[in-house]
């Protein structure tokens, strides 16, 4: 009788540890992004300190509401952490002729958005993905995040014809495939390429 219950306890402990091992193996890095995002939400209230504790994987989401509105009118509002400071400077000095469109703003708005982008650029993001983007750039930084060597490399797996789909239209339409792009999460797990 005593032996049997001891056996049962051992069995239970074994299955439990097996279960634990299995779940930790499953909790891959993508899930960390999600956890990290939730944690960051809390850390935001503890100010800059939170950001410095560890390097995050995701790109910090946009927090400036004017940026979201003005730079999100024609396309997804790209996180400043997707490009280095120099790229943002170039973008903001040429808004009148912005990829074939006029994206000009009042001088006042342009100045504050430029500052926001530069203060949160890839160099300041403290993010692994932003650092990968930064490190991949050799020479003059491009205007487009999608033209940085790291992202060109990440995006070379699907044929160009995919981008012509009505549901996608352009590689610049990040949110079409990265369903969590607005939260700065670009993990493979949340990619869904629409038909």
């Amino acid at each position: 009788m005593k032996n049997k219950s001891r056996f049962l306890v051992v069995l239970m402990l074994m299955t439990m540890s097996l279960f634990l091992i299995a779940t930790t193996a499953y909790a891959d890095k993508d899930e960390d992004d999600e956890k990290e995002y939730n944690l960051l939400g809390k850390l935001e209230h503890s100010g800059e300190k939170g950001k410095k504790i560890f390097q995050i994987r995701s790109i910090p989401p946009v927090t400036d509401t004017t940026y979201l509105k003005e730079c999100g009118a024609c396309h997804f509002a790209y996180q400043p952490g997707l490009l280095p400071e120099k790229s943002w400077e170039k973008i903001f000095s040429g808004l009148e002729s912005h990829f074939g469109e006029d994206a000009s703003l009042s001088a006042e708005k342009a100045k504050s958005l430029r500052e926001y982008a530069i203060q949160n650029s890839a160099e300041k993001a403290n993010s692994k993905r932003a650092n990968k983007i930064l490190r991949s750039i050799k020479g003059e930084p491009p205007l487009r995040a999608s033209d940085t060597p790291y992202l060109i490399h990440e995006h070379n797996e699907f044929p160009a014809s995919v981008l012509k789909r009505k549901s996608i239209m352009s590689i610049a339409n990040c949110g079409a495939c990265h369903t969590t792009a607005d939260r700065g999460i670009y993990s493979e797990r949340y990619i869904h390429i629409p038909k």
Binding site: G72, C74, H75, F76, S167, M169, S170, N173, A176
Partner: peptide, 11 residues
């Protein structure tokens, strides 16, 4: 103009 439209970037 009573229908939703779309930009060149798919927004």
């Amino acid at each position: 103009p009573t229908k939703p439209g779309e930009t060149k970037v798919g927004k």
